[in-house]
Design a protein around this nucleic acid. Structure first.
Lengths: 141, 141
DNA sequence: AATATAAACGCAACAATGTTGCATGGATTG
DNA sequence: CAATCCATGCAACATTGTTGCGTTTATATT
């Protein structure tokens, strides 16, 4: 199944005019296989030994994938970016995230749609919204 | 007026059993005078020359003020904490923030109340919610 | 298949934010 | 006045992320 994800990842990368290197494929396959948003570190640790990447390369690969809208970054309050594969509803970037205050895991809350029945002060322009619910996950709570 | 804020700040600090040092008073007065959430740097720059503090002392003073619920921290996506004085509705921590993507300023959106007509997956426990609207402020837009 | 080339990569060095340990200084209390 | 404890400053460190630059490699072209 992970092999299948590698093929999918390779396709996604090539369709965006990028080189399908082992690093990019590995990273995207990992993110595609994972439900929750992952930190730089978590991705690095899960990469097989044959595909160990430099920290900088990993950052640049993630940046490239995000630029091609294959993944997206998630803000957190621990000053660490998390990354999550884009698929389906996730592409809208208009869904919420849940962060466990205990184990720091981040998942997507697809069910929580954000209503736009409010308005900004005059002169202000809306671009996007970021909503994070904090609490304890099922394992920690 | 800033003088008045100094007195207010001194009161607030003493009522929480802390020493009313020049640093703490200065920091809190600055935050009380400012509508928007301020970064460590911005606070440092606005401190009068007579009250220049070490970076560490500033961090520790902010940490102390946050622990006493006199101010609160605001998450941002640029890995920089911002601090905002607590007063009135702000104490609830259940209001939203707006961040300008151009000038990076953060203001509180008191009007935007967050509805709780949703629920988390089973086993998950809610603690708090953080909502950041991004866009352009009146000056930048 | 060989080659040219632009895209990825790895290394080193750097920048920014924030933290920890420890010694010093100054206010508060007895 | 002395003892104590809180706050401060300095140095050193940790972490995350970025930039410059020379090298390697995937892909297209021959």
């Amino acid at each position: 199944m992970l092999n299948q994800l590698h093929i999918t990842a390779e396709d996604m990368i090539q369709q965006n005019g990028g080189r399908a290197t082992a690093g990019r494929i590995g990273i995207l396959a990992i993110l595609l296989a994972e439900q929750q948003a992952m930190t730089h570190r978590e991705i690095e640790q899960r990469l097989p030994e044959a595909v160990q990447l430099d920290r900088v390369t990993l950052y640049r690969a993630l940046e490239w994938l995000a630029g091609k809208n294959l993944i997206h970054k998630v803000t957190s309050d621990d000053r660490v970016w998390r990354y999550h594969a884009n698929r389906g509803v996730h592409n809208t970037h208009q869904h919420a995230h849940f962060k466990c205050m205990c184990c720091a895991q981040v998942i997507c809350l697809d069910a929580l749609t954000i209503e736009r029945n409010w308005h900004l002060p005059t002169g202000y322009r809306f671009q996007e919204i970021e909503l994070t619910v904090k609490g304890l996950c099922a394992d920690c709570g």
